[in-house]
């Protein structure tokens, strides 16, 4: 990796840490420990199911919110505050800046997810007093959640490279919501006719298919994830993130920093 990319990535991570982004972990810990205590008292036999469902959904949602709200300001805030001027006047190429920012945000989310994962496992241990082999499946769900974050980070960065933070937030959040129902959209496209079918099919394949990454329920029921799905999701997420990132680079390369 080019060293300037690594320095920019580290600085982005440092910004997130110093701006107290990781404080969300406290909220997460409170939520999860509260839930674990509560379900331990009111549910019989399904404590694990509830904790895994709730824990992993919270990991995903907390991460998505962080990815969107940091991602949308990654470029636009730097332009607005003019911090970018002293970076790009150095031997740093614009694409290096974008890639560095992306990796910094992705790194922040990975670290955040790591600590949340500890919380999930702690809650699991609290309700079942032991770990079983099937609990390892939680790692697979976490991996898919991280892949999901990569896509969201790249989209937030793409919007941030040409739009205001507010509009970028709206775009990114809308895509996240639509993408979460991508399978339904594809189903609707299959049933539609004429031009609606074409439009719906186009939209269904254009928006990120987040529903393919949601394996939380099946993992909570201790159902293993197919190897093909792992490969498919990995390739899809990397391709989608790389495409969105290339778009961001392309826009930013020709943008006047007024």
């Amino acid at each position: 990796m080019k060293t300037s990319i690594a320095h920019i990535a580290y600085n982005t991570f440092r910004e997130a840490v110093r701006d107290r982004v990781l404080y969300n972990l406290i909220a997460f810990a409170l939520l999860l420990s509260g839930a674990a205590i509560l379900v331990g008292q009111i549910s019989i036999e399904i404590e694990k199911l509830v904790v895994i469902n709730l824990g992993l959904t919270a990991v995903s949602l907390f991460g998505v919110v962080i990815a969107i709200f940091i991602g949308i300001g990654l470029v636009s805030k730097e332009i607005e505050k003019r911090t970018l001027y002293t970076v790009l006047s150095r031997p740093v190429r614009r694409w290096e800046f974008i890639v560095g920012k992306f990796l910094g945000l992705a790194g922040t989310l990975v670290v955040n997810t790591f600590f949340m994962a500890i919380g999930v496992f702690a809650a699991l241990f609290y309700v079942s007093h032991k770990f079983v082999h099937a609990d390892g499946l939680v790692f697979m769900a976490l991996y898919f959640i991280i892949l999901e974050f990569l896509i969201i980070c790249s989209l937030a960065l793409l919007f941030s490279s040409f739009s205001s933070p507010l509009l970028s937030a709206v775009f990114a959040f809308s895509l996240f919501v639509i993408g979460s129902f991508a399978e339904d959209l594809r189903g609707f496209a299959a049933m539609a006719h004429g031009i609606t079918r074409w439009l719906a099919t186009g939209a269904a394949y254009l928006v990120p298919n987040f529903s393919a990454f949601n394996v939380i329920t099946s993992i909570a029921h201790e159902q293993p994830v197919a190897g093909q799905l792992i490969l498919q999701n990995t390739v899809y997420a990397l391709f989608y993130a790389a495409t969105a990132l290339s778009g961001a680079v392309l826009i930013f390369e020709y943008r006047d920093l007024k």
């Binding site: 910004e15 001027y85 006047s89």
Partner: peptide, 13 residues
């Protein structure tokens, strides 16, 4: 080359 922009603002963290 070195550059000082007008009314510079830096990473305040």
């Amino acid at each position: 080359t070195g550059f000082l922009p007008e009314q510079p603002y830096f990473y305040d963290y």
